[in-house]
């Protein structure tokens, strides 16, 4: 009966949230599908054609697409590095060391130090991922100037927050029995990590990193809107200057890039995981 009550409450809350959201966002079907809306859509699609395929533009788009690819790849790589650097603090089992069986009784100070290391590593990761890539990009543009470098830093920091937490949770949930066996034969904490935890976790870690690369190629295409390089910068210009025929070429390039990275990621996953 109690379960029933909770379900009812949950259902009502969801309903209330939906109604409030609808009212608050000024959602209006007539605006989208009414005569005026339909006319605007048709006009927009019409203006996209024919796409601009002049060699000069194609060369420029190709360059920008490669830049976007590089930003997404380096950003993900930087994220993996940052996340790995914080793992020692963010993984509970690694912080506590002897946690594979039971914590060795130790001084209050030591326990406080561990709690502090774990808490601050986790807090840092939360900060990294709570701030969106675009905000990080704006901040890094202030530091390193306009261009793809700011994009790499922005993607790296935000993604490190996401991957750091996922990596830590994968490592905390590996089978502990092989780790306990290694600890019992005299292995140090680092050795238990290298021989026990990492081999078990590696497929999942790689899988998460590849997935985030797929996410980051889309994010990298947007980063140009705030001046952090890549296809986005040109998309932004084309949109604002009503260069609709260039727009179609750019959208097609973005689509092609996303499909390419998804395919690469799938291939790597099959080879490595």
């Amino acid at each position: 009966m109690r379960r029933h009550g909770w379900s009812l409450l949950l259902g009502l809350s969801l309903g209330a949230l939906t109604v409030w959201s609808l009212l608050d966002t000024g959602l209006s079907l007539p605006a989208l599908l009414g005569a005026e809306g339909r006319r605007q859509m048709a006009l927009f699609v019409q203006r996209l054609f024919p796409p601009d395929l002049s060699p000069a533009l194609l060369r420029q788009v190709g360059q920008r697409a490669l830049e976007t690819l590089a930003v997404s790849f380096l950003g993900t790589l930087l994220a993996v590095g940052l996340a790995a650097g914080l793992l020692g603090g963010a993984t509970r089992t690694l912080v506590q060391g002897a946690a594979f069986a039971e914590a060795v009784p130790r001084g209050k100070l030591r326990r406080l130090g561990q709690a502090l290391a774990y808490g601050s590593a986790r807090a840092l990761l939360t900060l990294f991922r709570a701030v969106p890539e675009l905000i990080w990009a704006l901040l890094f543009i202030l530091v390193v100037g306009l261009g793809p470098f700011a994009g790499v830093l922005a993607l790296g920091v935000h993604t490190a927050g996401v991957l750091g937490r996922l990596f830590a949770e994968v490592l905390e949930n590996v089978d502990r029995r092989p780790c306990e066996a290694l600890q019992a034969l005299g292995a140090s904490r680092l050795q238990v990590f290298l021989y026990g935890m990492l081999p078990q976790a590696l497929p999942e870690l790689l899988s998460f990193a590849l997935y985030r690369w797929e996410v980051n190629i889309r994010a990298a295409a947007i980063l140009g809107f705030v001046g952090a390089g890549g296809l986005g910068q040109q998309l932004f210009v084309a949109l604002n200057l009503f260069l609709h025929q260039q727009l179609l070429t750019l959208i097609a390039a973005t689509l092609g890039l996303v499909i390419l990275v998804d395919a690469c990621s799938a291939l790597l996953r099959r080879l490595l995981v």
């Binding site: 306990e180 290694l182 005299g186 292995a187 021989y195 026990g196 078990q200 497929p203």
Partner: peptide, 27 residues
């Protein structure tokens, strides 16, 4: 349950017997 690391090659599971003597770098 043997408590070996399933994804490691046999050679590394056996050499893990040295870990008490090896440094982190050697490992």
């Amino acid at each position: 349950q043997y408590n070996l690391v399933p994804r490691l090659r046999v050679v590394h599971n056996v050499l893990a017997g040295h870990l008490g003597r090896w440094s982190g770098w050697r490992a």
